[in-house]
Nucleic acid binder design. Sequence first.
DNA 1: TTCCCCCTCGCTATATCTGGGGAGTTGAAA
DNA 2: TTTCAACTCCCCAGATATAGCGAGGGGGAA
Lengths: 236, 236
Amino acid sequence: MAILESFIDKLGSVESFDRLNDVIVGLRDVLETEHVIYHWVNSTGEHCAALTYSEEWTTRYLTQDYARLDPVVQACLRQFNPVDWKRLDWSGRSVRAFVDEAVDAGVGNQGYSIPIRGPSGQFALFTVSSRDDDAAWSRFTEARARELILISHFINQKALELERGSDTLKVVSLSPRETDALTLLALGHSRAQAAESLSISEHTLRVYIEGARMKLAAMNTTHAVARALNQGLLIV
Amino acid sequence: MAILESFIDKLGSVESFDRLNDVIVGLRDVLETEHVIYHWVNSTGEHCAALTYSEEWTTRYLTQDYARLDPVVQACLRQFNPVDWKRLDWSGRSVRAFVDEAVDAGVGNQGYSIPIRGPSGQFALFTVSSRDDDAAWSRFTEARARELILISHFINQKALELERGSDTLKVVSLSPRETDALTLLALGHSRAQAAESLSISEHTLRVYIEGARMKLAAMNTTHAVARALNQGLLIV
DNA sequence: TTCCCCCTCGCTATATCTGGGGAGTTGAAA
DNA sequence: TTTCAACTCCCCAGATATAGCGAGGGGGAA
């Protein structure tokens, strides 16, 4: 666990994403892998990342919106445990084109990606990639899996810290009834049904929905429900 | 890390929540703490739990819907990193009444809770509680923090597996245009605005929304967006 | 080649939601 | 004690979404 210790130690003094990048590069070196990537999109749409990919590939990936077809991202979005790239489905025309580009850009052929989820619907990805053959890669992932989980945890913690330092995350809190109302709407009830479920008049329900809309700065009901879900305000 | 190893080993053979409970009891014993609790509410509203609390307290907690005012739950809902109970705000009339009851029920005065988030908005809690004094408890948490994170990770993985056979979600796949449509709606666009953003007629947009509604078995647009978000189909 | 899914467009009516008013009670915090 | 937030109820008009009927072209898979 020496790697983990020194990593956490270095993390302690990090105070900006630039510095975080240095630590990531250092991590890549001690792990003796090709690339290490930490990335997430914050609530304001900014990309917060620390990675060892070339700048060309990074901008290419973003401008082409490759996250939409990248099997790694798609798998991590619906999985809890880490993903070994070689267990994914890489068939499909557009996917193969993407992979060819990725290989040319120096992304390794092997990879191990850990999905990380935080409050307010945060979703981050921590990836280690390499050019090892299958056997060497299996040894690496088996030996390092637990360390990598902890590393991903601590780096995300640091990233959230950096994020909140820059701008204070305002916490929207919904009243119990507002939560009830949005929850029922998210479950597919119409306003009339929701009002009946809560044993209140439809008008009252409307007051809650509008209250929630205001608090969440939402344009309409659907938007309010979406924001509430993304911020983890609803237990659905 | 001997505790972790044996824990993971025992987890391997677990095939039901009852068995999981046995493992949790074993974990409580080797950690030499008062209680160990793992709990989450699945998508069908069932409580999936493995814990060492008395049955009285558990049912009391659920029937009273204490999660709504429990500072531990509230803090974990908006935090990424683990929560030490003693750093929380326990003031407030109803909270103190709740605490008195909890102490009577044998819940320790110390506690360490780890929030766990999975796909589809899953939110679980892993808690270790004790009756140690502050000094002993600090030593415990500092020494065990990393192990506990990994334990919480693996137990959640197992719970997801028990819940649905594997920890991967079966997916409804939306067409690209359907995804676009729902994404814009989730961002607060009206149908007219969304249609304009996509440079298509409002009618066409409507076809996509209805297509998505059918695939997702949703009652209305809000429901469809909520389901799509919960299933990680939208990148918002 | 045929089938099926995806993308695109139109019309009409009805249901539902949104936005503008206003008003009274309760309970907890300052 | 006062204040404030939450909860409850009412009416109305205009905006928006839903539900039903259509149509045709393109591309991949069997």
